[in-house]
Each structure stands twice: as structure tokens, then as C-alpha cells.
């Protein structure tokens, strides 16, 4: 039917558009000039990590949250164990004393988000994103508060390390759910 449509015929008979001769050369020059390969860096590293563990295809995204939660749980347990030995010296710093419980609280929060995503699926993504943002904001706030609690100029290193851990983990989880969102969106379209 389309083939007999005069408009379609006109379109099909339209002369082809000629691409400038040096088109590829100009693109390649711009690519070669890029100081650091744009395809490289953090995102490529993340992709390699996800590929290595087949995250994209075989592991459902809630599991990312369970694994991260587990990491924080182990961290809390280790600090709790260590605190039994060193607590005497750190009694003056209440923030340090509650560090294991805070790590366990973060673990519970991430596991909760994982369950929420598992139950709600794609529909739960806005809440999960909000939950992750809270987690990252808390990591920054807590890192700064803990750094300030020490009367030492190098305490900012502790603050930065704690905050960065939270931000990097939160960022990776954000990337993970974004991949999940893209994949489920494509699947929805295909169905």
C-alpha cells in the first residue's frame, strides 16, 4: 500500500544526501585529541566490574543492595569487635563509640531498600533513589561530624574517607539501578 502512495514515492525518489568527504577524518581528529579517552575512566571501570560479575544480566538489582548491606554489616561487626579492645581510649568520643551501630543501621537501611525494590520492581525506583540520596547525604554528614570530633588536623582524612565510601557506594548503586531501569524499559517496549 505504501509503495503506491505518491508521497512515499517522492520521498523514495529524493536524491541521497551526500556526507562531506572529510567527515570521518574530522571526527577521528577530534577523538584523537581527547586528552583522556572519554570511554575510559570510572564508567568503564564500573562496566568492567559489572561485566566481571555478570551484574547486568544475571543478578537482579535488589541483590546489589543486599551485598552492600552485607558489607556494612560486616564492617559494623568488625568495628564492634575492635571497639571492645579500644573503647577505653575512645570513651570521650560518643560518635566513635556508636560507629558499629551506625554501620549496622546503614546495612539495615540498604537491605530494606533492596527488599523494597524486590517487591515493587520498577515502580519502586523513585523511593529507592530517594533512599539512596538519604544514605549518601548521611555519609557526608557523618564523615564531617566524625572528623570534627577529633582534635587533630589530619582528622579531615578520616572524614573524607568515610564520606567518599558512602558516596562511591551510593553512586555505584545509582548506576546499577539506572541500568536496571534502562533494561526493564526496553523489555517493556518490546512487550
Amino acid at each position: 500500500m505504501e509503495n503506491h502512495d505518491p508521497v512515499v514515492r517522492m520521498i523514495r525518489e529524493a536524491p541521497p544526501v551526500k556526507t562531506p568527504d572529510d567527515f570521518t577524518g574530522r571526527i577521528m581528529t577530534r577523538i584523537q585529541r581527547l586528552p583522556v579517552e572519554r570511554a575510559a575512566g570510572g564508567i568503564r571501570l564500573f562496566n568492567r566490574m559489572t561485566e566481571a560479575f555478570h551484574f547486568r544480566e544475571s543478578i537482579p538489582p535488589p541483590v546489589y543492595f543486599f551485598l552492600t548491606g552485607f558489607f556494612f554489616f560486616v564492617l559494623g561487626a568488625v568495628i564492634l569487635f575492635a571497639a571492645n579492645h579500644f573503647l577505653g581510649r575512645l570513651k570521650a568520643l560518643p560518635l566513635v563509640c556508636c560507629q558499629p551501630w551506625i554501620a549496622i543501621l546503614i546495612a539495615s537501611w540498604l537491605v530494606f531498600l533492596g527488599f523494597f525494590l524486590y517487591i515493587k520492581g520498577r515502580a519502586g525506583l523513585p523511593v529507592v533513589r530517594m533512599g539512596l540520596s538519604l544514605h549518601m547525604a548521611f555519609a557526608v554528614f557523618y564523615g564531617i561530624a566524625l572528623g570534627a570530633a577529633f582534635d587533630n588536623p589530619l582528622a579531615f582524612l578520616l572524614a573524607a574517607a568515610l564520606s567518599l565510601t558512602g558516596i562511591v557506594m551510593g553512586g555505584l548503586l545509582f548506576l546499577g539501578i539506572r541500568e536496571y531501569e534502562k533494561r526493564t524499559w526496553n523489555e517493556q517496549q518490546q512487550h
Binding site: 556526507t19 574530522r26 571526527i27 577530534r30 577523538i31 572519554r38 570511554a39 575510559a40 562496566n47
Partner: peptide, 14 residues
């Protein structure tokens, strides 16, 4: 078109 190819290059890892 150039921008599209450059953007694709930059996002190739994804």
C-alpha cells in the same frame, strides 16, 4: 552528526 558520533564514542562503555 559529528556530535552524535562523539557522544556515542564517549558512552561506548555503556
Amino acid at each position: 552528526a559529528q556530535e552524535a558520533f562523539l557522544r556515542a564514542y564517549g558512552n561506548l562503555a555503556r
